[in-house]
Design a protein around this nucleic acid. Sequence first.
RNA 1: GGUCGCAUAGCUCAGCUGGUUAGAGCGCACGGUUCACAUCCGUGAGGUCCCAGGUUCAAAUCCUGGUGCGACCACCA
Length: 908
Amino acid sequence: MSEPLSPQYEPGLIEAPLFRDWEENGYFRADAERVIQDGADPYVIVIPPPNVTAVLHMGHGLNNTLQDVLTRWQRMQGREALYLPGTDHAGIATQNVVERLIATEGKTRDDLGRDAFVDRVWTFVDETGSTILQQLRAIGCSCDWSRTRFTLEPDLSTAVREVFVRLYEKGLIYRGNYIINWCPRCLTALSDEEAEPEETNGRLYHLRYPIVGDAPAGLPRLPDGRAYLVVATTRPETMLGDTAVAVHPDDERYRAIVGREVALPLTDRTIPIVADTFVDPEFGTGAVKITPAHDPNDFEMARRQNIAAIDILTPDAHLNRNVPAVYQGLDRFDARKRVVKDFEAAGLLDQVVDHTHSVPHCYRCDTIVEPRLSEQWFVKMKPLAEPALAASRNGDVRFTPDRWTKVYDNWLENIRDWCISRQLWWGHRIPVWYCGNAECGETIVAREDPTSCPKCGGASLTQDPDVLDTWFSSWLWPFSTLGWPQDTRDLKAFYPTNTLVTAPEILFFWVARMIMAGFEFMGELPFRDVYLTGTVRDTQGRKMSKSLGNGIDPLEVVNLYGADALRYTVVAGSGLGTDVYMDPANLEATFSVGRNFANKVWNAGRFALMNIQSDEVKSVSEVQDTLELADRWILSRLDAATEEVTRHLESFRFHEAAAAGYHFFWGELADWYLELLKPRLQEGTDVASREAAEATLVAALDGILRLLHPVMPFITDALWRRLPRVQGVDAPASIMIASWPLSGIRRDDAADAQMSALMELIGEIRTLRAEYNVAPGTPISIHLRDVHHNLGTALRAEERALRRMARVGGIEHDAPVVAGAAGAHAVLRGGAELFIPLADIIDLAQERERLQKELERLGGMLRGTEAKLGNEQFTARAPEDVIEREREKAENFRDQRDRLSTKLAALG
RNA sequence: GGUCGCAUAGCUCAGCUGGUUAGAGCGCACGGUUCACAUCCGUGAGGUCCCAGGUUCAAAUCCUGGUGCGACCACCA
């Protein structure tokens, strides 16, 4: 026997050694050759790579627990399971972190220069980059750590470069001047997805633009007699870049002045008044200032109308001749104040009203993003989107929950080109060079760094200074991590992967783009199933975040209650894609579900180990003939639990799978079977009964520990390893590599029915005792009448247990119940009556009424079913199994009716 | 404006194919500690399954409409 187990579960003592053992024995490693040569069935999950600088938060905790549950389950199903870990270099995020770091030394990135800065980031990443992966180990993730990847490592950079060149050669990457989202703090372009709209309270400034020359009557006039138009803007400073004013072509108010010009205040420019259907005559004054360089709609309109664009927001603004000297070099918000002040001074400020609107913010630093015209690199997305869209439409890729399918489709249907250049230093440098020879001006896009211009032979080449969007490496993750573009064994064995588990926030950023990349570069979907988790929120429903300070540190939870408690709690708390609520202020209450369950598992296991004397038990099949009712029942329930857990895992109903295991373990195994067993485990018990009990107990524990292992890997293995050996069975060293149980083998409906009857009897006795305030220790006697077969069998089989569990002294069968006798009385489900001679409170009439109602309802159901079966059309058309089910229903209803009638009759 | 989702116990949620008495955890009330576990055991209270119609022998479940809440996308001069 093993050393004594502590009465309270202490996860800290078992987790680290177990994890080390798993790792040292290579259980995490996946073998490509087993797939390729031996035909093993692969199961692959690639981790959504966390930012390399990240520390674990509950979102990761949820996400990676679910991935590990799937991986462990599939591994036990005998598949060659690969859970591939890694991190993302996270361009903006990481660069920001390091910039803040050097700021504490009073330096900027420009002080260091590009190379030194990038070196500095590498140092930082090397020092801290594996933190999050270490933390994933602490929550038990069974990743193949030997395959850990990083998006900026050489192999993955090769993949990125290959992809860039291929897309460029195919004409899907282009460089162009478009309005992009510019973060003035990060000083870089952002993709549309990286600019997050937020409701913001702002102001709408109404500005007067004087019309040049004579104006028709009816327009308002300035004191000097000039007519003017009023335009509204939330960003008055952009008026310096106005190149037109637009009105709706059908707007009567302005029809006469279309084609005329206005004098742009504060400048010496005049700009035309144009007509465009984009303008909403209902909004504001119906006249819109057009600033093509700083507004996407204006940009589009300017292209239609052939209007010039003036960029007033370049870092070189002070050189911009279009901006009057007083406004040059100002911050945009200072410029705004100045412009408004000057309008007011000139009598051109019409009014200012409060205005709530949503304004895009940088997803990394939350600064208000400025739309800005600039030259960037783009990927043409439409051709890439088509196969990705087809895949969801024909069901090749499946989203769970299903509602995300439409969200995904919708985005792909309206896809816009992807701005992939970033004005950062940390990332994959764009593999483009420009020939310095003014005569030549060649653009070179190459897999290998060029040394001279292939066109003119000139050696003066300059590489594009920008780097690529982080997601330009992550969209290749499912195959770049397996060695692409090399033709590797891993790629052959493990692509495509199977399941992707991630947060819905990155459906567009990442999931959709991975699917596109999979088709484009591998000719095949990267995965079939996408499971989108919910969001972890606090009790007020707020998303957990560092800035709100409402996060929960998973490692703290692991230290307090153990990884299994954490895992069980998040799994049980997350319905299909629903948000998970946790209270950061009360970890004890939040994680009590998992902690208490882990403790229960521990103690039930401990009980079993203490009570089984030998270190070897017989197999269940060997004691088949001496199994008692309770044994057959618990094995039947285990079989049912196995079926349930498996079925729920197959449909990503993690919470249901967890609940099924929990219910079996606590509600059936611990609450009933172990209690029923206690008399049989004592000294002096019949040897055959004891052997049957021990065999069954070990089998039941073995089964449920396997079912729980994917969710609670540590405690299940710790106990499983200590279980007595079963004669003639060779068990593997760890439950991790043990097989997943099969169901449909030990279902025993008779045992289920008999045990239910006994459980009901015990429940009724307890209820009556509680109702009549009989102290739990006081033995009682019971009278039973009309004991049906199931209960009779159960009583004969488990009478010792009944006496023990319900503190029953005498049992009188078929004792006459004297009318009006003092006592507690209950009618059991099967029609038997229970009488405890205690008091005289019983309402026969009420009970009769209830049963009568029940009988009527049942009659209705039975008539309906019989009518269906009697309907010729139904029986002619319905499939055989449907008809069979109807027949079973009818049968069942008739049985119930008969039983109810008997009950009613028994009440007199 | 477009698309989608949700509404069940005090709280957070299950409830899959319409069918026994609508469940769980937490919380609450009452009682219980020699003999695995007080991180425990037993019992109980607490539900117009958002509202109104419809289909059906039968609706929390399916359909229509309404109300309330939320998410995403677009727009927001």
